[in-house]
Amino acid sequence: MEHGPLAGQIVEAYDGMSAQLQAAARYVLDRPRDVALLSMREQARQAGVQPATMTRLAKNLGLDGYDAIRDAYASALRAGDIGFAGKAGAQALTQKLKGDHALAGEVLASMSRQIAGLMEEAPLNRIVAAAKRLASARRVYCLGLRSSHSAAWHFHYILSLIGEKSTILDGIGGTGSDMIGRATEQDVLFVVSVLPYTRATIEIAEYAHSRGIPVIAITDSEVAPLAKLSEAAVIIPTDSPSFFHTMAPAFAVAEVLATLVAGHGGDEALEALRRFDDQLGAFNVHLTTRAIKRQP
């Protein structure tokens, strides 16, 4: 996901801002297209702050007022400098009025555009850099809780097919995080988390970081907790016409990362896959055409 012309300045000043200013700053950072197109009052409403907070944000960044921010983003948009950032929030408010077919189409179209945006140069560079770091690790510890679990588990499952490189931090009885105690600086913690961030995920990542274990993340903002902890972070959009944030881009990135890591595995990965195929055949895991019985 691309950000606007003030992204670097916002990230640098973010930690020193109040909670309200951070909410406004995050909106500007994560919704560059909306900053260029929507009124200040509408942006404040979507950010959950008062309009005066948007003005204070501008002054915090050394600008005369919020119009200076909007003008900068509008100029960048006209010049083609802002990548796709999702549907405008104002449109999302009316989607439920269009009917089930229209809403389903909006959700699928939004996912398609978001995933297509990951093929731009900047996101691809991040994905490739993250994959190379994961491939070079002795072992990869995978973590994703709640809505992020599926992306982390899918990444782990693909790697499990090519050997014993991956460990999922997911255990019965609250023991999932115990395995990270075995990690060293030669390993990597691969972690997925998006807003609202699960407390346990961030705490485990902070623990790993404090012990010198590299963190590779999929998250949703340059100012997300994981982005600050990570050696490499892939930033994905989560906006959706649905009431629930989308995890489709995170899942897609996890699958791409696993594919690239597997490709770095060479002959050892191929041999592991042959053994796995033999095991699947021995246990007759998959349904075969001959096993399907048609009803008369």
Rank of each mutant, 00 (worst) to 15 (best):
L37R: 10
M40W: 12
I172E: 12
A233R: 06
I180G: 03
H156M: 02
S160C: 05
Y66N: 13
V261N: 09
A47G: 03
F243A: 13
L61E: 11
L29T: 09
D178H: 09
F251D: 01
T53R: 10
L108I: 06
L145E: 02
V285S: 10
A23P: 01
P32N: 12
S148L: 08
R31A: 01
A79H: 04
S147M: 11
P123R: 05
G86Q: 07
L273C: 08
V35Y: 01
A258P: 02
D170I: 02
P237N: 15
A137S: 11
A252L: 04
G265T: 08
A13F: 04
L280Y: 13
R26N: 14
G65E: 07
T167K: 02
A116C: 08
L270P: 00
T198M: 04
R290F: 11
I202L: 08
L273M: 15
A47I: 01
V192E: 07
L169V: 04
L134A: 05
I235W: 04
V192Y: 03
H209F: 06
G8P: 00
V215Q: 07
R290I: 07
G4S: 09
V28N: 03
D81M: 03
L57C: 13
P196F: 07
S110D: 10
Y14S: 12
K87M: 09
H149F: 06
A88Y: 04
Q50K: 14
S230F: 00
A208G: 06
A116S: 15
E255G: 15
S150G: 09
P196H: 05
A90W: 00
P32D: 10
A76Y: 01
R211S: 00
R26G: 10
R139Y: 00
A232I: 11
A24D: 08
A104K: 14
C142R: 00
Q20W: 08
